[in-house]
Design a protein around this nucleic acid. Structure first.
Length: 569
RNA sequence: UGGGAUGUCGUCUAAUGGUAGGACAGCGGACUCUGGAUCCGUAUGUGAGGGUUCAACUCCUUCCAUCCCAGCCA
């Protein structure tokens, strides 16, 4: 796959920043503990992937690429109540789109249900697990609290024969949901709650998206995950910080069981991004409450949303690389993501001219009916992108913001008596402003200098301002969707007392601009294509576009140093 | 108040006993047919206190702050 090769190549060119996981891997490789590494990305198919998952995907697949190992995609599907094939499919699509390939190594935890069951009987026979009849409430009570040790279950000392019989009957579906569990026999007094005889199996008479109605009991995460890792020969099982407390249990199971190997669990800090949320639950709420248009709303931090917005996989991978990996909880500025997007698109996106807020401009000394073609660079960063023709006539539109009747200091756009350049066309000077009854500017009358054809003159005259424009005769109307941060609070984990995420929704996160005018060349724009609209920003053709009714999503705006400057004035 | 973890420029992240570095953001400048891009320059940091050492972000110690854990979720 093309992108895969690129990743490897890039790695060799770019100095990779070290991190503690790389150190562990390099040590293990150097010591001969492992000849090669195997990682895995283990999503539960209960929602769409987001930028936080992207970090994990890039980490796991990236490590496998860099150290010439492999990375498995494994669906952690041990809770059929929350899982669905819709999510399985979207996850595979997103991982591929990001540029990664698991090859033959697609797995499901549910593939191991038989093996997992055998191992559970093994634990029972070894006296390490028992069937417990405590109800949910009782179990909670027996567990104790953070500071108070738990109490042994009254069923803890059942005979192996009884446990085996009961467990087999649980499997056979003889008991109702919630009536019994299989528990590991560890230590109810452990300060680590995960070690207080954790549940291994629970009864759930739920249809599973892969195993159908084969099972009446389903294994819990802690038991399933470590065994799945071991069965797949995973060397480094990388997960997020909240599983740190689970590591003793991960190791305990693998120590008791006759598994082929004992992977090392390594925890890193999950990604937090400024001005957004990463909780699957809240993301689902945004969708269900119609606060966004769907999982792929371009404002969503989901991979699907970012894809629709126009972010590129390259930019997301670059971002993942730049944020690094550590164990410290952190909040990453969204500006870094935007930087990565701009940097990538600057090299690749073709330029076009689009006027967002059109203001009519007539060139009084340019003949009525005359139309000229000018050659415009498709991408000044990439000469191989070639040139295109754009039409010019007496009647044009420019950006309302590019004219000022009372120019402030430092203004070098258009104003009365001032000369500016129309990009690729002519120098023009504004002579007259036409207003309506309300005093609003509705048209500018200008003259052009015929000798400035193409946008420059031989006398070397300095023209500070260069404006984008469209030809009134040939421009096409388009819709622009201007996206901004979904929330107004940078650290959404730090909301004011009593407020919810809904109190921080940014009312301006989507501004729809109808009847913007685009140069005629955009007529042929295809869904998904990326463009830079000169002096405006990067845009992507939304899939809701229809022939003759194009819709563009703003991916990110251009750096605007005038906006910054003018604020200081 | 039990257990586990984490504190390095504004932000993210390197440096594992030997010059605290990079990136983004910021600031200043150059250049420019995008006030884009590019280039150059520049300020800002080891949570606090003790100790060990010729030398401490790094080792020891005390403290402080923050995060995670009481699902038959993952």
């Amino acid at each position: 796959m093309d992108t895969k090769e690129n990743i490897t190549e890039n790695k060799e060119e770019k100095a990779v920043t070290s991190n503690f996981i790389r150190s562990i891997i390099e040590r293990d490789l150097a010591s001969g503990k492992h000849k090669s590494i195997v990682t895995r990305f283990p999503p539960e198919p209960n929602g769409y992937l987001h930028i936080g998952h992207a970090k994990s995907i890039c980490l796991n697949f990236g490590l496998a690429n860099d150290y010439r190992g492999r990375c498995h995609l494994r669906f952690d599907d041990s809770n059929p109540v929350k899982e669905d094939v819709e999510y399985v499919n979207s996850i595979m699509e997103d991982v591929h789109w990001l540029g990664f390939d698991w090859g033959e190594h697609l797995y499901y935890a549910s593939d191991y249900f038989d093996k997992l069951y055998e191992f559970a009987e093994y634990l029972i026979k070894a006296g390490k697990a028992f069937v417990c009849d405590l109800s949910w409430e009782e179990l909670k009570e027996y567990r104790g609290t953070l500071t108070v040790p738990g109490k042994d279950s009254p069923y803890r000392n059942r005979s192996i024969e009884e446990n085996l019989d009961l467990f087999r009957r649980m499997k056979a579906g003889e008991f109702p949901e919630g009536s019994r569990t299989l528990r590991a026999k560890i230590d109810m007094a452990s300060p680590n709650l995960n070690m207080r005889d954790p549940v291994i199996y629970r009864i759930k008479k739920t249809h599973h998206h892969r195993t159908g109605n084969d099972w009446q009991i389903y294994p819990m995460y802690d038991y399933t995950h470590c065994v799945s890792d071991a069965l797949e020969g995973i060397t480094h099982s990388i997960c997020t910080l909240e599983f740190e407390d689970h590591r003793p249990l991960y190791d305990w199971f693998l120590d008791q069981l006759p598994v082929p190997c004992h992977p090392q669990q390594i925890e890193f800090a999950r990604l937090n991004l400024a001005y957004t949320i990463m909780s699957k639950r809240l993301l689902l709420e945004l969708v269900n409450n119609h606060l966004v248009s769907g999982w792929d709303d371009p404002r969503m931090p989901t991979i699907a949303g970012m894809r629709r917005r126009g972010f590129t996989p390259e930019a997301i991978r670059d971002f993942s690389e730049r944020i690094g990996v550590s164990k410290a909880n952190s909040l990453v500025n969204d500006e870094l993501l935007m930087f990565c997007v701009r940097e990538d698109l600057n090299k690749r996106a073709e330029r076009r001219m689009v006027v967002v807020n059109p203001l009519k401009l007539t060139i009084t000394n340019y003949p009525e009916g005359k139309i000229e073609d000018f050659a415009a660079e498709n991408n000044p960063e990439d000469p191989s992108a070639g040139k295109r023709k754009i039409k010019f006539s007496r009647h044009l539109y420019i950006e309302k913001d590019d004219f000022s009747e009372n120019p402030v200091k430092g203004w070098f756009r258009l104003s009365l008596g001032k000369e500016v350049r129309l990009k690729y066309a002519y120098y023009i000077t504004c002579n007259e402003v036409i207003k309506n009854e309300k005093g609003e500017i509705i048209e500018l009358l200008c003259t052009y200098d015929e000798k400035s054809r193409g946008g420059w003159t031989e006398d070397g005259r300095k023209v500070k301002g260069t404006l984008h424009w469209v030809c009134a005769e040939s421009a096409i109307p388009v819709e622009l969707r201007l996206y901004d941060r979904l929330f107004t609070l940078a650290d959404m984990s730090n909301m004011e007392e009593g407020k919810t995420y809904q109190d921080y929704l940014n009312p301006n996160s989507l501004i729809v601009k109808q009847n913007c005018l685009a140069e005629e060349n955009l007529q042929e724009a295809k869904i998904g294509e990326h463009y830079q609209f000169l002096r405006i920003g990067y845009f992507n053709v939304d899939y809701n576009s229809k022939p003759g009714a194009l819709i563009f999503n703003r991916i990110v705006d251009l750096k605007d140093s005038w906006a910054k400057l003018s604020k200081k004035i």
